[in-house]
Computed example of a mutant assay.
Amino acid sequence: MSILGNLGSLFGGGNQTDAAAGGASLVSVAGQLIQQAGGIQGLTNLLQQHGMSDAVQSWVGNGANQAISSGQLGQALQNGGLNSVVAEAASKLGMSQDQVMNGLAQVLPHAVDHLTPNGQVPSNGSGLDLSSLAGLAGKLFGPHTDTA
């Protein structure tokens, strides 16, 4: 199932408009996580410390992105002190924290991949332009004919 289809079911019913709006919100939450973690470098370091090195390297590199489970992500974020970002997002979106974590586990690999187009993690998080994630939301959740 595509990310759009998965998020459509997350937002109740698979309506493409709901999925696009929810997907854009999840991309925004991913941006907040990246920011709170100290940029791409901070987030990748955190996830690598919690056993996700291979997956994180696949996101940064130029190949296919490896998946992570929402459980792995949740544990890393909680241990890294970032669970409050997820709790706040769940409250704002009217979703459970599990639903937000499931969505983030799908969106975060694409966000990191999108923000590291040359296969390199930027060394300074302060120079990160998170506004470029808006384009990612459109690519992932915008209207298209892919039903896979």
Rank of each mutant, 00 (worst) to 15 (best):
L108Q: 00
V107F: 08
S91N: 15
A90D: 04
G138D: 08
V86C: 01
P143W: 03
S96G: 13
V112C: 01
A105M: 09
L115Q: 01
Q120R: 13
K92A: 13
V121P: 03
V100G: 00
N118P: 03
T116L: 07
G119C: 07
D129N: 13
Q97C: 04
L130F: 09
G135A: 08
N124G: 08
M101K: 01
M101L: 15
G138I: 00
Q120H: 14
A105L: 04
A90K: 00
P122L: 10
V85G: 01
N124D: 14
T116M: 08
D113S: 15
L133A: 04
P117D: 12
A105E: 09
L140R: 04
A137L: 09
E88K: 14
A111V: 02
H114R: 14
G119R: 06
L140V: 00
A87Q: 15
L130W: 03
L104Y: 03
L133F: 06
V107W: 00
A111I: 00
A90I: 00
A87T: 15
G135H: 12
S131D: 11
L104D: 00
A137H: 08
L140D: 03
K139V: 11
M101D: 04
Q97L: 04
S132D: 10
S131P: 02
L130V: 07
P109N: 09
G142F: 00
T145A: 11
P143V: 07
Q97R: 07
A87D: 12
V121A: 03
Q97S: 13
H110F: 14
P122T: 07
S123K: 13
M95Y: 06
A105T: 05
A89S: 13
F141W: 10
Q97G: 08
N124E: 10
D146I: 11
A111S: 15
N118I: 04
A105K: 07
S96I: 08
H144L: 05
N102K: 12
A105V: 05
S91R: 14
F141S: 04
H114Q: 14
A89Y: 02
H110W: 04
P109D: 02
L133T: 02
S126P: 02
V86R: 06
S132G: 11
G119V: 04
D129Y: 07
L128K: 05
L140S: 02
